[in-house]
Design a protein around this nucleic acid. Structure first.
Lengths: 204, 204
DNA sequence: TTTAATTAAACAAACGTTTAATTAAAACAT
DNA sequence: ATGTTTTAATTAAACGTTTGTTTAATTAAA
C-alpha cells in the first residue's frame, strides 16, 4: 500500500489538472482519495501548501534527463537536439496532467509565490537547451538563430498539442474518442516534425 | 457612454483572464464594472452564460483578417505565410487577455459546451492556414511538410510567449517590470523568428 | 399606465479551515 | 514480554465566509 501523503498528492494532481485550482475543492480531493476531509489539512496545512507540495514532488526529474543529454560526448549537437525532442515529447505526453496543471497555473497571474517557484523549476531546462544551441553555433554546426525563441518553438509546439484533446483531434481530423497522446504513432509524428523543423532551421 | 452590457462583458473578460472562471466572482465583476450585483444575472442570466457571451462577442474578427490574406492574389504562398505571421502576432499580443482566457478554458476539461464552441471558433482559422500551405505544396513552392503540426508550431510559439510574462522575461533575460507584448521591437523579433523558421522549413 | 432598469436584502449551498474527541501506533520503563 | 505513557493519525461536527442566484420593492423610461 502506498504512502497516504503521496496518494493524496497524486489524486489532487489529477483533479487540479482537470478542474483547476479554484475548481477543485478539498472535499473533492478527500472523497477521490478516500480519506477524511481533515486529513488534507492535517498533512499539508492548507490547500495552497498542498499545491506547492505537488509542484515540488514532480519537478527536477526532467532536468536530470536533459543534463545527461547535454554532457553526453558521443552526440553531435544536432543529435543532442534530437535527443532533447525525444525526451521532451515522451515526458510531456506521459505526464500530461501534471504539465497541464503547471501551465494552467502559469496562465493565471494569481498566487505569485507559486508561479515564481514554477518558473524557477522550468527555466533551468530551457537553459540546458540554450547551452546546446549556443555550443552548436560556436562550433559552426548551427546557423546563428534566435536561441530563446527557438526554445519557445520547441516547447510551444508540444504544449499546443497538449492544450486540449478536443482542439488537437479537430486539427488532426480524428474522431472524438481518439487519445493522440497515448498513441505511439502520433508521438513519433510529433518527434519527426520537430526534428525536421529543427534540422532545416539550425543546420547550415 | 458605453453600452452597459458591453461594459460588463469587457470588465468580466479582463477579470476572467487574470483570475480564471472559478477564481472570479460575480461580486468581483459587479464591483469592477461599478454596477449592482444583480445586474449581471439580469443581463446574462447566469455566470456561465456571461462567459459564453464573452466568447461570442470577441470571436470571428481574426477569421476575417486571415480570409483576406488567403484570397489576396498579389501574394506568393510564402508571402501569405509571412502575412499570416504578422497578423497573428499583432492580434494575439494586442488581445492577449482574451486569448489567455480562451486557452485557460481550453486547458481545463470543464464546461464541455463552452469548450466545443471555442474550438469551433478556432478551427476555421487553422483551416485557412492549412489551405495556404496545401496550395503552396501543390504549386511546388513548398516542400511536403506535416501541415497540421506546422500550424501547431506557428500558433504554439506565440502562445508559449503569451503564457506568462514571468516565464517570458526569465527566458529572455529581461527585468521583471518589462512588458514584452507591448514592445514593438519584441513583436518584430517574434515575427522575424517565425518567418525565418518557416522559410527554411517550407521552401525548397 | 405599462414596461424596463436598478436596488438592497435574503437565500441556500459550498467553500477552506478548525476544533475537540477518539483510535492507533510508538516509545518507554519495568 | 508487559503494562503505561506519549505521540501520531483519524474522525465527525461545527466554524465563519463566500459563492451564485433570487426576490420583492423602488425608480426611470416608454
Amino acid at each position: 500500500m502506498k504512502d497516504k501523503r503521496t496518494h493524496i498528492i497524486e489524486t489532487a494532481m489529477n483533479l487540479f489538472a482537470g478542474k483547476g485550482y479554484e475548481g477543485t475543492s478539498i472535499r473533492d480531493i478527500a472523497e477521490s482519495a478516500s480519506v477524511n476531509l481533515a486529513m488534507v489539512n492535517y498533512y499539508f496545512g492548507s490547500k495552497e501548501k498542498l499545491f506547492e507540495s505537488i509542484v515540488k514532488y514532480k519537478s527536477s526529474l526532467t532536468r536530470v534527463l536533459l543534463d545527461e543529454i547535454l554532457h553526453n560526448t558521443k552526440f553531435t549537437y544536432i543529435e543532442k537536439i534530437d535527443a532533447v525532442i525525444d525526451s521532451y515529447v515522451e515526458r510531456l505526453f506521459t505526464h500530461r496532467s501534471f504539465h497541464r496543471l503547471i501551465y494552467h497555473e502559469l496562465i493565471l497571474n494569481q498566487r505569485d509565490e507559486l508561479q515564481t517557484s514554477i518558473v524557477d523549476n522550468l527555466i533551468p531546462n530551457s537553459i540546458i537547451i540554450k547551452n546546446i544551441i549556443e555550443a552548436g553555433i560556436k562550433k559552426n554546426e548551427f546557423k546563428k538563430v534566435d536561441i530563446e525563441l527557438t526554445i519557445a518553438t520547441l516547447i510551444g509546439t508540444i504544449n499546443q498539442m497538449l492544450l486540449s484533446k478536443k482542439f488537437c483531434n479537430r486539427l488532426l481530423n480524428k474522431e472524438l474518442s481518439y487519445v493522440p497522446y497515448d498513441d505511439v504513432k502520433f508521438r513519433k509524428r510529433v518527434k519527426n516534425h520537430l526534428k525536421q523543423l529543427m534540422h532545416s532551421y539550425l543546420i547550415n
